[in-house]
Design a protein around this nucleic acid. Structure first.
Lengths: 253, 253
DNA sequence: TATCATTTGTTCGTATGTATC
DNA sequence: CGATACATACGAACAAATGAT
């Protein structure tokens, strides 16, 4: 049965669409092997490159995963993901962040400058800053890269930070509070495909998207103090926020 | 100058890497046209398919965007995105949601069932529910699809919802509050590549990821009432949350 | 307005390498 | 070891969009 495809719209897209449909309908269950490229060629009467383009689409949609020498398996649509809790808890003078993760490597502290998005979110223009990079892992093996940017003027105000910029974010919150600030946090979330080095750092096999969040810690009157950046594989993690009925986020952009 | 590539790692990946590097270094500025495929073939001594694979990588990394008949342009790394404010504001008995968007079409109300993720987040198992689908647009033309799931038992409690399930989320919050509930919201954020129909609904040209958020409105003691789902193009929008130091999000999986 | 060169999009055929079973 | 399956690479042809002549 050569269930041939017609011309008009790109054939590899049509084929990808049909396969995606079949997966959605459960004709191919998660974990199943899809028909091999040769079988798909024969079944739909198209060439190998066309089949490969279609399967590439499925991969990029996160619906399938190819294994060299074995076949292409259907990925479970609702992949078991770890929830990264983005809430902050305060008990007395101590702060706790929601996600329980450990440092896979020692934090790397460098001196750099605020640039681009970083500069904009910190409301500073090319200023010197401490940059602390961490690689985090949780019990399930989910990885995330975490970068804290501490402008020099803030580190100057809070000597504790200048001495040891590589302290936990929770401890940084505590230090800033001890310095007399009432803290507010605003978090911006977006997603994109990873750059090669990001994919390597997160040990991503597939080419799926990463979640990118920017957390701005500011004073009560809106002066940004520090910036945290978290990158993680969207196929493995989702972020959790508690939303409270409150004042609106100050217009940032 | 044929700056030839060596074997070991896939040539198209090497080429993609070099081009990505050049973009990062600013050799190709945002908005610039990359060399044409023919030029890249000659410059690096590879075939057209290899060049095309490399450029496809760049697109999937969000670094470039190809335009039929014109060329491939470098995308600005920090694309101007609209901020979708996910906060909720309450003034007296009225609620306001942060993002100002209008309905591009009339809301479509259907009767369905809670399934999969939906069922899990609502803590119900295959129950009947109203499903309200909307297509939202804001002033900048950013699109988002929005789905509200109202289980029948909740609609039964609050007759207002049964009569008009297709009221604004803000009005739903008000109705639930009027019915005696103290509301809490938890939002889960993830990202993935869009399915074909989702890409069509959001009018996405590129193949970049979409942001997916699930907002659970629950009572103070943690009983989920309704679920909102928002899908939007990650290349065009980012989500904003206000994080307050508070109790931790209840473990939801 | 019509034509043409340029550029990307799609599809085919073919060959070889390499991982898995 | 051999069969199967995916990965990479080359060559070639035509379609379709764009921008300039």
């Amino acid at each position: 049965m050569t269930d041939d495809l017609v011309r008009p719209d790109a054939m590899y897209r049509q084929l990808a669409g049909r396969l995606a449909e079949a997966i959605a309908e459960g004709k191919y269950a998660p974990g199943d092997l899809l028909p091999s490229e040769t079988q798909l060629m024969e079944r739909y009467g198209v060439s190998r490159p066309t089949v490969r383009s279609a399967v590439a689409e499925l991969r990029s949609m996160g619906l399938a995963e190819s294994q060299h020498g074995r076949g292409t398996v259907v990925r479970s649509v609702a992949v078991p993901t770890t929830v990264i809790d983005r809430t902050v808890t305060r008990t007395g003078k101590r702060f706790t962040v929601g996600w329980e993760a450990t440092e896979a490597e020692f934090p790397a502290v460098t001196r750099g400058h605020t640039t681009g998005v970083t500069a904009h979110l910190l409301d500073r223009d090319e200023e010197a800053a401490f940059i602390v990079d961490r690689l985090l892992t949780d019990a399930s093996g989910t990885r995330a890269t975490h970068r804290v940017t501490i402008p020099f003027d803030v580190a100057h105000e809070v000597p504790e930070l200048a001495k040891a910029p590589d302290t936990d974010p929770a401890a940084i919150y505590a230090a800033l509070t001890a310095a007399g600030h009432t803290l507010t946090w605003t978090e911006y979330v977006t997603a994109r495909s990873p750059l090669p080095d990001e994919r390597a750092a997160l040990r991503m096999a597939d080419t799926g998207p990463i979640l990118v969040t920017y957390r701005v810690t500011a004073t009560a009157d809106g002066r940004p103090l520090i910036l945290e950046e978290l990158h993680t594989n969207a196929a493995r993690a989702q972020l959790a926020f508690r939303v409270t009925a409150n004042k609106s986020v100050r217009s940032a952009r």
